[in-house]
Simulated assay, not measured.
Amino acid sequence: MRWLRIAPVVVLLAAGCSGGAPRDVDPGPALAAQRTTATNILARWDRAAAGDDVVVVQPLGGLRQVGDWEAAVGDNHKAALLAGLVEAAGRLPAAHDQGTIRLADGRTRPVRPLTAAAALDRAARSRQPCAPCRPLRVTGARPITADLDTVGGRVMAPAWEFTLADSAVRLVGSAVPDGAVTVLPAFGRPEGHDAAPWLEHARAADGPALAVSFAGAIVPADEPCGSDYVGEAVESARAVVVLIAVNRTYDGKRCPMIGGVRSLTVRLRAPLGERTVLQLYTGLPITG
């Protein structure tokens, strides 16, 4: 299942427009449904963190860009990387026979790293059509150690740093085999549950609290096509899930399908600290 990150201007259907008036909405039922899902998401996260497996929050095949594209190649190379159009220009080095995954708590796990060619081939599996794009040509690779985001925290693991034919930008890809880790899948929205706002950003604030931004109505509820929102947090020792629901809206005619980014401050029982903020329904970390 692919989850799309919502941009600062979003498309949505809001209730109310000219000729109406603001009215209060009981957010209780929506928050209660979200709260049940959030509790299950946190339980899953805590089980994964306490288990013996190395559980990563995204597949290992992606390539991370290091540096900025030069003006002469930027347009092509940015699109080519997003499309997974990466290929070797020649023979790439073999891997060491043995590597180590160093966990956040200091423990280590032995692993047999992928060769540079195998890591590059894995990255190319996600290739998407890009008719005008020229593939990125990899001219060399060297073994390095790079971080992986896991449910148990950031770990260090074998990786490859790739050099390119016509750019100083480097690409970093994991050398950890797929079978050495478990990928945490998206949780999914329970059947019959309404959609909830997608969180764009979350950061710790005084209170203790979280300052969050999310996709919603472009104006408040005292204006046509507007809505107001209320939020709360469901917490565990390792993670937090933010719930958001409408508590006031402007009744009236159907509105244009346009919206924007709104913000709220949501109180926490304890400071965020090292805990992870998870997206409702995906159960995966918020990236902003």
Rank of each mutant, 00 (worst) to 15 (best):
258 I>F: 06
283 G>I: 10
167 S>T: 11
146 A>I: 09
222 D>E: 09
148 L>D: 02
280 L>H: 13
241 V>C: 00
231 G>I: 04
208 P>W: 07
157 A>C: 10
273 G>A: 14
184 L>D: 09
243 L>T: 03
146 A>S: 12
156 M>D: 14
144 I>D: 01
217 A>N: 04
227 S>T: 08
235 E>L: 04
255 C>P: 04
283 G>C: 07
247 N>M: 02
281 Y>S: 06
198 W>V: 15
234 V>T: 08
189 R>A: 04
217 A>R: 03
152 G>P: 05
234 V>W: 01
187 F>D: 02
283 G>T: 09
164 L>W: 10
168 A>W: 15
148 L>P: 09
192 G>Q: 00
203 R>D: 15
145 T>N: 15
245 A>D: 02
243 L>A: 01
267 R>F: 00
160 W>N: 13
145 T>D: 14
193 H>W: 01
269 R>N: 13
208 P>E: 09
262 R>D: 09
191 E>I: 13
205 A>W: 11
241 V>A: 00
193 H>Y: 07
237 A>P: 01
200 E>R: 15
261 V>R: 12
175 A>R: 06
183 V>E: 08
189 R>D: 03
206 D>A: 15
260 G>L: 01
203 R>A: 14
161 E>I: 08
201 H>Y: 07
202 A>M: 10
270 A>K: 12
197 P>I: 07
265 T>P: 01
262 R>E: 14
173 G>I: 00
219 V>D: 15
239 A>K: 14
197 P>H: 03
222 D>P: 06
283 G>M: 13
277 V>K: 11
170 R>P: 05
228 D>G: 10
221 A>H: 04
248 R>Q: 12
269 R>A: 06
